[in-house]
Design a protein around this nucleic acid. Structure first.
Lengths: 141, 141
DNA sequence: GTTAATTCGGACATTTGTATCCGTTTTCCC
DNA sequence: GGGAAAACGGATACAAATGTCCGAATTAAC
């Protein structure tokens, strides 16, 4: 369902979404809070930054923060930020290449099925997952 | 969406579903028809046999055939036959373990979202993907 | 300025998924 | 019974994902 990297990313984003507006959290702290390997999460966060979901600020008192509100980020976006450029879709039936232009007999049905699964992920926003979570107070050490 | 192994498996099953009832097809032939690496597909087919979806018959004139009709196999089953025993679901929020018994705040929402995506795959049967495919005649060399 | 805290970026190590190879066993055909 | 065709099953090789390490570059505090 979720690649491991995307799962780390999702946790990190959910954690950031619980921070008060404008507060930056360093990668180390995020890793500690979400239980992700710190060094790897650092890379993952850079990926999220490249995708425009978070912004990293260097230097002392720096860290990461959401660029976009949690109501505007879907799980589908998070997944999409980490999947490969999608290997030129092979035909479900046999060897030949399969495109919308020259579809195989199963093409449309398969597209529909995949679409339904993706839609399910695209319709869930981070905010939805946080329903019932009381916004965390700003507690800095 | 689909792991590569599951994709091979799905193609193999769809190919078998197009065979006339009772006809066995050797793994080599399936691999050739679906464009999968022959040696690896052999292993994959053993997995499908273990899952009870196909049956392998040894010896000359042997091969693989569906155990269950295409109308009774869902894409979800094929996926499930090849994913890991599902690493004890970690909580979406933070480090602690998360279960239905002691759910985190995001637990229910996340379960629902995953459920919707899985349901989309479970509702697609192989037969649905083969709509519009004329059943292939038995042409043995 | 100097120092500490932080993101950046590359190089490397480890693990897991994918693929290959080869011998063994079973079964049919002659 | 002997040979060929096939599924089994283990050992190994390759590739990609995941995780680790370390030296920059940047920024704020003092």
């Amino acid at each position: 369902m979720l690649t491991r990297t995307a799962e780390h990313a999702l946790r990190a984003l959910l954690f950031l979404a619980q921070q008060p507006e404008g507060v930056l959290v360093p990668a180390n702290r995020i890793a500690q809070a979400t239980g992700a390997p710190a060094n790897y999460l650092a890379k993952t966060l850079q990926g999220l930054a490249a995708a425009g979901l978070v912004r990293g600020t260097r230097g002392r008192e720096g860290g990461y923060g959401l660029v976009v509100p949690a109501s505007a980020i879907t799980v589908g976006q998070v997944i999409a930020a980490f999947d490969v450029p999608s290997s030129a879709d092979r035909c479900l039936l046999g060897d030949r290449p399969c495109s919308s232009a020259k579809p195989c007999a199963a093409h449309v049905q398969w597209q529909n099925a995949r679409g339904a699964a993706l839609r399910a992920m695209r319709t869930v926003r981070l905010q939805d997952l946080l329903a019932g979570v009381t916004r965390q107070l700003a507690v800095r050490s």
